[in-house]
Amino acid sequence: MVITVTTTPTKSRGESKEVADFELARALEVASAVPDPELPCVTVADLGILRSVSRDKTGRIVVRLTPTYSGCPAVIAIEMAVETALLSAGIDSTIERVITPAWTTDWITDEGREKLRAYGIAPPVGVSGGRRAFFAEDAVACPRCGSARTTKVSEFGSTACKAHYRCDACAEPFDYFKCI
C-alpha cells in the first residue's frame, strides 16, 4: 500500500487557461461516475472519497482517492474499479491513496445523501463529531416511511460504515450510514 499525503484537496477541472483539457475533464467525469462496490446507489464522487483528478508534471492523469475507514476492505476494489473505468475510456492513470484530510461523513454530498435514502439506507444524521456518551443513540428517521420511531439493533451492520436499525412504525429493518 502506498500512502500519499496531500494537504490541499482540490477538485481540479482543467486548470490550463490557454487550452481546454478535454481528456482531464473526461477523466473527471468517468472517475466521478464509478459506483461504490458495496453501496452501488452512490458514486465515489457522491461519497466524497474521490478527492481529485489532475495531471502530474509528466502530464499523466492522477486520481486521488481516500478510504472511509482504515480497514475498509473495499478500498482496493474501489481503486481498481476507477482505474479500470478510466482504461475503458482510453485513459491511463495513476491511482493514489490519500489519508489527509481524513474522510468524514461530512464529505457525502447532498445528492449522495438523497440517493442513499432512496435506496433504503438512512444517511448520517448531523455533522461529524468526537466521542459520544455511552448508550447515546442518534435519532434516525426511517428511510422508507420517514418515521422517527426507530430502534438501533446493532452499532455494526453489514459493512464498517453502517449500523443496523429497525423502524417501529413500519417494522422494516434498515441500514444507517453512521456519522463519523
Binding site: 475507514y69 482504515s70 484530510p101 481524513a102 463519523i180
Partner: peptide
Amino acid sequence: GIAAKADKE
C-alpha cells in the same frame, strides 16, 4: 492522517 481516522474508529 492515520490518527484522524483512528480517533473516530
